[in-house]
């Protein structure tokens, strides 16, 4: 379980993480979404004990991160954004050093290493030097190092960053296999990744959580924001007034007017489908419909709206 209360990190006058409070339940996979510089990495670095918070508290596995930093680090598996690896070591050596540095029981090293080699698909490159690994294998090795000690909490910073689509899919599948046993907090700026891998998505912007919900809930939020583009041959003021009075229509705006035609944007409240009502109104008033297009706001657009339109 991860609990943050008013967690804040300031770099001089820059607020990197701004009073963030949230709870991640055991067994949950939570995606931290946000544009570059939103504060995702800083937030994760505070949870791993790498950076101290300026204000607020955080508890990981029921332990206060500042008071029990060592124990917290024992319970966490962490894949940093840059996935730093020792280039001069071979894959097996890297895992062996990790096991030793983590203070794991020497008798448990070979089975634990064999297990992560199998889970992460590293069998083909065990003897290879890290310096000669492809980006995909490097990411797998980073993940293998993070899960070697079978941590209850996994913190993954951009786990698929820089990978090609096939490699991204492989890493996502790997995260799915870990899902049953672990609490996972991962950061990403790839929306489909958050949608496919996470039970819950948090959108962070300028260090603040601006949206929090399951991918389905955010999808519904997107559906609620559906828009209808209607092109009518009609007098603009009268048509606008009539359309605004239709049940389910939240807002009407004129996108453009030309000759005796107008293009209206209708925003519907609660995701209501108003196409039929518009059609009936047009027939009743004898306003020829030149075009009608339903636009559904995608999760990407919700993300864009939340992260682009906000003041810093």
């Amino acid at each position: 379980m991860i609990e943050l209360s008013q967690l804040t990190k300031r770099y001089g006058s820059t607020m990197a993480v701004d009073h963030v409070s949230l709870t991640v339940q055991p067994g949950e996979i939570v995606g931290l979404l946000g544009p570059n510089g939103a504060g995702k990495t800083t937030l994760l670095k505070m949870l791993t004990g790498y950076l101290p918070p300026t204000e607020g508290t955080a508890r990981v596995a029921n332990l206060e991160i500042l008071d029990n930093s060592l124990e917290v680090r024992r319970r966490i598996g962490y894949l940093p954004e840059t996935n730093p690896l020792y280039e001069d070591l071979a894959v097996y050596e890297s895992l062996e050093w990790t096991a030793r540095l983590r203070g794991m029981n020497p008798a448990s090293h070979p089975p634990a290493i064999r297990h992560v080699i199998e889970v992460c698909g590293l069998a083909g490159v065990v003897g290879k030097d890290v310096a000669h690994l492809s980006k995909g294998y490097r990411q797998r090795l980073g993940l293998a190092q993070a899960i070697l000690h079978d941590p209850e909490i996994l913190i993954l910073d951009e786990p698929t960053s820089g990978l090609d689509p096939n490699q991204q899919q492989e890493v996502r599948q790997l995260i799915q296999t870990l899902k049953q046993k672990k609490t996972v907090l991962l950061s990403t700026h790839i929306l489909p990744e958050a949608q496919s891998s996470c039970d819950r998505v948090l959108i962070i912007h300028h260090g603040k959580i601006v949206a929090d919900g399951t991918p389905q809930a955010l999808g519904q939020q997107a559906a609620r924001g559906s828009r209808l583009l209607v092109e009518l041959k009609a007098p603009a003021p009268a048509a606008g007034q009539a359309l605004a009075q239709l049940s389910g229509v939240d807002r009407v705006a004129v996108q453009k007017a030309y000759d005796s035609c107008v293009v209206f944007i209708l925003e519907s409240a609660g995701g209501a489908d108003v196409r039929e009502a518009v059609f009936e109104l047009a027939v009743q008033r004898r306003w020829p419909i030149l075009g009608m297009t339903q636009e559904t706001i995608s999760l990407e657009e919700v993300f864009r709206q939340l992260t682009m339109g906000m003041p810093s």
């Binding site: 790498y50 840059t82 990790t98 983590r102």
Partner: peptide, 14 residues
């Protein structure tokens, strides 16, 4: 330079 200090500093080592 290699970024491995972050790896070291997040291991359970003082």
């Amino acid at each position: 330079k290699a970024g491995t200090f972050e790896y070291l500093a997040t291991l359970p080592i003082k």
